[in-house]
Amino acid sequence: MDEIFSVRGRRALVTGGSRGIGAAICELFARHGARLAVFHFNDDANAAKLEKKMSVAGYKLHSFNCDVADESAVSTAVAEVRSLLGGMDIVVNCAGIGGDKPFSEISVSDWDRMLNVHLRGTFLVTHAFFSDMVDQRWGRVINIASQLAYKGAPGLAHYCAAKAGIVGFTRALSYEGAPHNVMVNAIAPGPVETDLLMGLSDDWRAMKQAQLPIGRFGRVEEIAPTALLLASEAGAFYCGQTLSPNGGDVML
């Protein structure tokens, strides 16, 4: 193991960690020595499957059912995490939802739920641990945005707005964290083969794949290493950045 990419002994929380990109990040972090907790929302079967997979490989994973948009639920889950791990060194805000609709068909409840899960959830979970990171003078916050925060997309006005908000939040908070060695960064993946992508319409996915210079969707294993970079000492000079493994969909 290359020690510069080690997160050995670090306590890491991954929201939305029971499947998709979050699960891939958990597995990679575990192989590099992290102590892991996961928040998922009503996804007990996948959480149990991941726990078993990790256990067989010799790793321990603590999972908690938590709607990250619910302040009370986050407070309860955070207390449970603290009782087991004592605090947190790395927070990966990966919880998210999808669904494409023409703007005229997006209801207020659709809009609110999208922003609440992505943006409010990122705020609530980060807020719960940020002061601890500042006090211990070490921390990593990694927010999962999207290349669509920059590019936009038809049928996803609410999703793109939420992800753009995460990019802005990341930049602003990095100014407050960096003087205390708390580095706040984001990842803006391109379209990746996950349940969220498969939940979009066939027409939307065909349109998106045709736009990609690489000619295919990404795999979760191609996104997780970026999170490891930002969580480890190899990423110590990244501050307020949004890295975008996206198959060329956006070239910044």
Rank of each mutant, 00 (worst) to 15 (best):
N246T: 11
F64Y: 15
Y238H: 15
I142M: 04
V182E: 00
G98T: 14
E27Y: 02
M1V: 07
D67V: 01
G96Y: 02
D110R: 07
R31E: 14
A30P: 03
F29N: 00
R11W: 11
L197M: 13
V182H: 02
L228N: 07
V141Y: 00
G87W: 11
A79L: 10
V56M: 11
D195V: 12
P154R: 13
G165S: 10
H62D: 13
K52H: 12
L36A: 08
D202V: 11
Y150V: 08
I97F: 04
F237K: 10
I21K: 01
A188R: 01
V117K: 00
A224K: 02
Q211H: 03
S174D: 09
G165Q: 03
L212S: 06
E51G: 05
G9V: 10
Y238T: 08
R11E: 08
G98K: 04
S174Q: 11
M88T: 12
R140E: 08
I214Y: 08
W138M: 07
A162N: 03
H158E: 15
G99L: 06
A178Y: 12
T15I: 02
T226K: 04
A34F: 04
V56Q: 14
H127V: 08
A227D: 03
L230A: 02
N185S: 13
G168V: 08
D44Q: 14
